[in-house]
């Protein structure tokens, strides 16, 4: 049995959770195991219906949904208790989540409490018998093959390590509600309240179809007008390098990379960004990369699909003018 911790949003299962389900199904295919899901937290409609449709599509036979009001506010320890209950009741041999902050946090609690190893950001199964996984280290610039042969194999799947593919045969997903064995201790580190953020909209960056990137080449906090105009003309979001946030030119919520956001847009346009491995860690899932840089040898240029060589302060305004002329805006 393989259990997958599925995170949800307003539409159902998140994209990265569906990726984890596909990953689990591939592992199950090679080991003959069944895949169950566990989904925690409030599930108002239409999220619940969406979740069940996503799970059916992924061929999941059964979803375990804990019923407990104390799970309304997030607490990693309480979530991990709810997950351990499922691991035990199904005698699972593997527990998988997506490599999100919550996915990794809950798995770390579960692995510690079960006294087993955990592998973060797995991209591939290396060997099935005995189980070994390949995972991203150094922000994805190197890979580690790691044994995971404890009683329960606990690991998270790196975002965009695989595409969410529907199962050959859709399932009719059954729902099993259960009462988790949460204790008061599990609730000590629990979200007390949430403040909605108006200006600092990180979701806009991670979900954008187009991201315009800006690095040290932008040259100063007051030199973003052209880049912001391009971002707006493309209906996208601005993403920046760590140099830009460290110098205080733009807020950290816009940072792309190992210690910032991971993006997977259809198009990424990094302007004046050299392409250090830690930045690449956050943008390598972009479908198409169009780099603008004075240096034709910059790693970002050689790794891009397309590039324009030159000063971004000349090129970006020219693109903006051309876009306005051609699109009549």
């Amino acid at each position: 049995m393989i259990v997958v911790l599925v995170e949800t949003d307003a539409q159902g299962a998140t994209v990265v959770s569906r990726e984890a389900l596909t990953f689990a199904r591939d592992l199950a295919g090679s080991s003959g195991a069944a895949v169950h899901a566990v989904a925690i937290g409030p599930l108002p409609e239409p999220a619940r219906t969406g979740l069940l449709a996503h799970l059916a599509d992924q061929g999941v036979q059964l979803v375990h949904i804990p019923q407990d009001d104390r799970l309304a506010a997030y607490a990693a320890a309480a979530w991990s208790t709810a997950v351990i209950d499922v691991v035990k009741s199904t005698s699972a041999g593997a527990l998988i989540a997506s490599g999100t902050p919550r996915g990794n946090e809950v798995l770390a609690h579960v692995a510690t409490r079960l006294d087993v190893a955990m592998a973060a950001n797995v991209v591939q199964i290396a060997t099935v018998e005995p189980l070994a996984v390949t995972r991203q280290v150094v922000g994805g610039a190197a890979l580690e093959e790691m044994r995971l042969d404890d009683g329960v194999a606990v690991f998270s799947v790196a975002g965009h390590a695989c595409e969410p593919r529907p199962a050959a045969e859709a399932a009719v997903t059954e729902v099993l509600e259960y009462a988790p064995t949460i204790s008061d201790r599990d609730l000590v580190a629990r979200v007390a309240r949430v403040e909605a953020i108006a200006t600092d909209d990180t979701g806009a960056l991670t979900n954008a179809r187009v991201v315009v990137g800006a690095g040290r080449g932008a040259g100063g906090a007051d030199r973003f007008a052209g880049l912001l105009e391009l971002t707006e003309l493309l209906g996208g979001a601005l993403g920046v390098s760590r140099v830009v946030t460290s110098l205080g030119w733009r807020p950290h919520s816009e940072q792309v990379g190992q210690t910032g956001s991971r993006i997977a847009p259809d198009l990424y346009v990094p302007c004046g960004i050299s392409g250090a491995i830690q930045h690449w860690a956050g943008c390598q899932s972009a479908k198409t990369i169009l780099a603008i840089n004075t240096d034709a040898e910059a790693p970002m240029v050689t790794r891009a699909h397309y590039a324009v060589i030159g000063d971004l302060h000349e090129i970006v305004p020219a693109i903006n003018a051309e876009l306005r002329a051609r699109l009549g805006r």
Binding site: Y306, A318, A321
Partner: peptide, 19 residues
């Protein structure tokens, strides 16, 4: 496999074609 669309502002039409 990078395809260089051009250098400087004169590359703008090629960029918009790509977009």
């Amino acid at each position: 496999t990078v395809e260089i669309l051009g250098s400087g502002p004169s590359a703008a039409p090629a960029v918009v074609d790509l977009l």
